[in-house]
Structures are given as C-alpha cells and as structure tokens.
C-alpha cells in the first residue's frame, strides 16, 4: 500500500514535470515569436524613425545574448583583456551588432520568412529559418542557449557563414595589430557611421 502510494506520488510528480517541460516554448517558437514581432514593427507604417528603432532594439535585446556573443567574438583574446576592457567591449559590440542588425532589417521589403526545423542538444539548440527574396532562398540559422528560463541567440549563421566566427577572425587580427585602443576606436567610428546613415531600401 505504502509502495503504491509512493509510486503514485512519483508518477504524478513526473507528469507535472512533463507538462511543465512541454509548456515551455521551444527554441523555434521563441525565434519565431521574435522574428514575427520584428516584422510586425517593420510593417507598421504608423511608427518610424527613432521610436521604431527603439522598438526594434527592445525586441532584439530580449532575444540575443550580446554578452555571450561578445565573449565568443574575442575568443582567446577575452582572457588577456582587463575587466574594464571586457566591459567596454561588450558595450561597444552590443551597439555595433544592434546597429548592423537594424540596418539590415530596415531594408525589409516584404520577404517571407519560413521556419524549417530545430535541433536541441542539452541546453544548446539550432533553429533553421529561410528568407525568401525574389527567386532565392537565403538560409539563416540561429544558435541558441537555454538560460534564465528562455532560449537566447548566441550566433547567427547566414548562408553557412557563422557571423561570430567571422567577427572573431577580423577582430582577433585587429587586436593583434592595433591592440584594444585601436579596436575600440574603429568600433566607435563604425557605430557613429551606422547610426548616422541608415541604409536606403532597394528593390530587387
């Protein structure tokens, strides 16, 4: 009797756990949610300029783990940097990524995003999406990590090219040649440039 009671308890506990796990949004759902929210802002003709950029910024910062991306970008150089340099880098890199991303998505002109699939391995996942533009499909995959109750993007792979690996090779070379002051100066100049001149959308 005791045994039956206990196993009942365990079973119901497991069931509760299972429903909890099932109720949690999957990485694919979370990517889709953010992308759809971004598209909604872009389609909304009522907001533009600075308020629109702020809305986009909020959505992006809620789904991208910029701190992890910064650390991955510096790679082995991260450990050589002082705490102050690390903090400055995270700040600048977040701004730069955001400005680049907003620049890209502001050129949006009705492309269709489809969500292909997801692979989960422990607390890491990859979500495949595809952007249909004209007669080409551009594969865009998001790599995510599970932390603090949600899935967060730590790398984006566009047409087989990992953005973070790409940044890492460029930034590594700049740090080697010019040190952190040189890298920071270049990043500051680039952020100013990106914010000053939003790209014009062009038709295909």
């Amino acid at each position: 009797m005791q045994l039956l009671k206990r196993s009942c308890l365990i079973a119901s506990g497991l069931l509760m756990l299972a429903t909890l796990v099932l109720a949690m949004p999957s990485p694919r759902e979370q990517v889709q949610q953010t992308v759809e929210q971004v598209l909604e802002v872009l389609r909304n003709k009522a907001i533009s300029g600075q308020p629109r950029r702020e809305a986009l910024s909020r959505l992006i910062r809620a789904r991208f783990d910029f701190a992890a991306m910064s650390q991955r970008t510096l790679g082995k150089h991260w450990k050589d940097a002082s705490a102050q340099e690390q903090a400055r880098f995270v700040e600048l890199f977040s701004d730069l990524l955001e400005a680049s991303y907003i620049g890209r998505i502001e050129a949006y002109s009705g492309e269709i995003v489809s969500y292909r699939g997801e692979r989960i391995e422990g607390d890491m996942a990859e979500v495949d999406t595809s952007v249909h533009s004209g007669n080409v499909d551009i594969p865009i995959n998001y790599r995510l990590v599970h932390e603090k109750g949600g899935w967060f993007v730590y790398d984006v792979i566009i047409e087989e090219v990992s953005l973070i690996k790409n940044y890492r090779s460029s930034y590594g070379e700049i740090v080697r040649k010019e040190g952190y002051p040189g890298l920071f100066a270049r990043m500051e100049a680039k952020i100013r440039e990106l914010r000053a001149a939003p790209p014009k959308g062009t038709k295909g």
Binding site: G103, S170, E173
Partner: peptide, 12 residues
C-alpha cells in the same frame, strides 16, 4: 557598411 575591415569579413 557594417564591417570594420571588409577585406577580412569577405575573406573569412
């Protein structure tokens, strides 16, 4: 427009 050094970006 986006890269600090377009040559390095394209190469990688």
């Amino acid at each position: 427009r986006e890269s600090l050094d377009p040559y390095l970006f394209v190469r990688n």
